[in-house]
């Protein structure tokens, strides 16, 4: 298994946001993680990427236990992520946002950076090339020099994806990648996600807008921090538990 959680649990002051969650993602898949509001989806993301420490259970990535590691170390292992709100570096331009995000490959030492050695310059030039490629892949070349804070919402979401690509992720966790977008923007964003996958990046995404589920090979439904169903979109749609979770009690459906 590529990414796997085992009895993953997170308590917030006695309240279990995630409880003994067992889920897994295979390499090369696009998996959708869905569930009603407050089901614990973002908490799962924060646990996997190290922004929260699990209260119990384990997270395995490529066979290695990553539970409780620091976020930057998890990023280093090849787990990229975006945030629900379009967090970015507001005082950097779009291009700088991406360039800054290249921290891991190739890495320069303090002294290389201080003396701007030829090797440092070579690495930086390589990064600029790579950043340009990402810029084209995501389609942000037109707004390259716009400051992050002046960027329209749809572009901001694309930028967060572009930035996550800079760490050369093996798996990308997208938190509501199309929320708040217009129909046209959604279609474009979905084509970008498709392109990212075609480059061999595994994708796990959280989304409320069901339109994106056409991209997913498989969906996992969670409620109260626990998996209640798993399978293709069609299978899940017919699941009783899922109906209950989404539409309340059976009699309300």
């Amino acid at each position: 298994m590529f990414l796997e959680t085992k009895e993953l649990t997170k308590n917030f002051g006695g309240l279990a946001a995630v409880f003994q969650l067992e889920m897994s993602v295979r390499e090369g898949e696009i998996v959708g993680l869905i569930g009603p509001n407050g089901a614990g989806k973002t908490t799962v993301f924060n646990l996997i990427t190290g922004f929260l420490r699990p209260s119990g259970g384990r997270i395995l990535f490529d066979g290695k236990d990553i539970s409780g590691k620091k976020p930057h170390l998890i990023a280093k292992m090849g787990i990229g992520r975006t945030f629900q709100l379009a967090y970015l570096f507001p005082e950097f331009t779009v291009f700088e946002n991406i360039v800054t995000s290249f921290n891991l490959y190739p890495k320069s030492s303090f002294w290389e950076a201080l003396f701007k050695t030829p090797s440092y310059r070579r690495k930086e030039l390589y990064i600029l090339e790579q950043a340009k490629e990402i810029l084209y892949l995501v389609g942000l070349e037109g707004v390259k020099n716009v400051l992050g804070r002046n960027l329209p919402h749809g572009y901001q979401k694309l930028l967060t994806m572009a930035r996550a690509l800079a760490i050369k992720p093996r798996i990308l966790l997208l938190d509501e990648p199309i929320a708040g977008m217009s129909l046209e923007e959604i279609n474009y964003a979905m084509s970008v996600i498709e392109k990212i996958r075609s480059q061999g990046v595994t994708i796990l995404l959280v989304e409320h807008n069901m339109r994106i589920m056409t991209l997913c090979d498989r969906v996992i439904v969670i409620n109260f921090g626990n998996k209640i169903a798993e399978g293709s979109m069609e299978e899940v749609r017919q699941n009783q538990e899922v109906m209950k979770a989404y539409f309340g009690r059976e009699d309300a459906a």
Partner: peptide, 12 residues
């Protein structure tokens, strides 16, 4: 600017 984003792209 944002320590959350910074650590998500591998900045320690």
């Amino acid at each position: 600017q944002s320590y959350l984003v910074a650590s998500s792209v591998g900045i320690n």
